[in-house]
Design a protein around this nucleic acid. Structure first.
Lengths: 193, 193
DNA sequence: AGTTTTTCTTAATCTAGTTCAATGCGAAGG
DNA sequence: CCTTCGCATTGAACTAGATTAAGAAAAACT
């Protein structure tokens, strides 16, 4: 893990002294995941908030008929977790899986609270992180209810070009709220023009 | 406005001294809105984060064909704004309208920054507010892509029974991502059983 | 290197939800 | 008090997207 790059990323939100950064990094536990391995399985309590440092993870819900629905992708410098499970201690409703070989830094719920108390600047950091995440979730909801699938796919390509290269199409279909078959149809139609 | 009730609500998140609460309240500007009046019009910059103290507001996006798509409802103790516009100073993409006679307390962007500096506890307060909002947005996205309209309507009724009484059905349909006609059909079907 | 598993594609059929148009009705506002 | 406007409902025709099934291609394990 490149701590230089990580520190630079944090500087976009808050200014940390070297000791503070040191302390923060000491709370993080690295974990490597081969492609298709699970970071979190449905039913298990989510114990960590995980910062992706390499690769790409996918967070999905499995419905009563066994169909998977993608809630979010997480690439480098993105946090991922089942927030509901993490905050309430309830069993996870989501699965988190590495789509390619990946690495994360895990921060436990308890260490997170500790961090808030030791370095209140992190309240600000996560306030901004959550605020940004909220805005992009709002945009996604609007696009889902206001635009047809083809338009949403175009938007996705524009917004996350790197993710499109990285993950299987079926996950992208699922993220868009359509079947892989229908995404395939859309792609053929778009290619023809 | 009942400041007692408001203070009690804040105590769920952070502990404020009387002076701190006093200072915070001094930054808030009350505004009354008759039913169907706008708090924010599309194209205008969103200048305030507004805390609803009475009534109910609706935040919606208007697409290229003039159709309205509800992003959120806001009742007592909920904050509302076009976050993107508020944070970036860009023209608003959303309209915010009172659905019934309502009252809000407005906090300007500048005063919000001031508040963070004067009373860092508010970083924590809004961190929790955004975190909770994010979780409910995640749930909404999952329900939208994983479940059919009737199921989503049932969930809505369970989760927000008070809102269902308060707002016109067409807004609920829009929130669910369906047409008013189809919601009408669903209701008839549900009534028959 | 061969076999299994996963992913993508294509086409036919089906359905949840839309569109359009007409009607009735209650509530706002002059 | 009346008239306009916003809201809900109904039904018929339509379409975006789902489902099912089958085959091809690619990737993953042995």
């Amino acid at each position: 893990m490149d701590y230089q790059a990580l520190q630079a990323n944090f500087r976009r939100y808050i200014q940390l002294t070297d000791e503070e950064a040191q302390y923060f990094f000491s709370l993080l536990k690295p974990q490597k995941l081969k492609a298709r391995r699970l970071l979190l399985d449905i039913g298990d309590p989510c114990l960590y908030f995980s910062l992706v440092t390499e690769g790409c993870l996918v967070n999905y819900y499995t419905d009563d008929n066994g169909f998977e629905h993608v809630l979010q992708f997480a690439t480098t410098f993105w946090w991922t977790a089942d927030l509901q499970s993490l905050m309430n201690g309830t069993p996870s409703m989501y699965t988190i899986k590495a789509v390619v070989d990946s690495e994360v830094l895990r921060l436990s719920r308890a260490d997170m609270e500790l961090l808030y108390q030791q370095i209140p600047k992190f309240e600000r950091y996560f306030r901004i992180i959550f605020q940004n995440a909220l805005m992009s979730h709002q945009t996604r909801i609007m696009q889902n209810i206001a635009y047809p699938a083809e338009e949403r796919y175009r938007q996705f390509q524009q917004t996350y070009p790197h993710i499109e290269q990285l993950v299987p199409q079926k996950y992208i279909a699922s993220y868009l709220g359509i079947t892989p078959e229908f995404l395939s149809k859309i792609r053929r139609k778009m290619a023809k023009k």
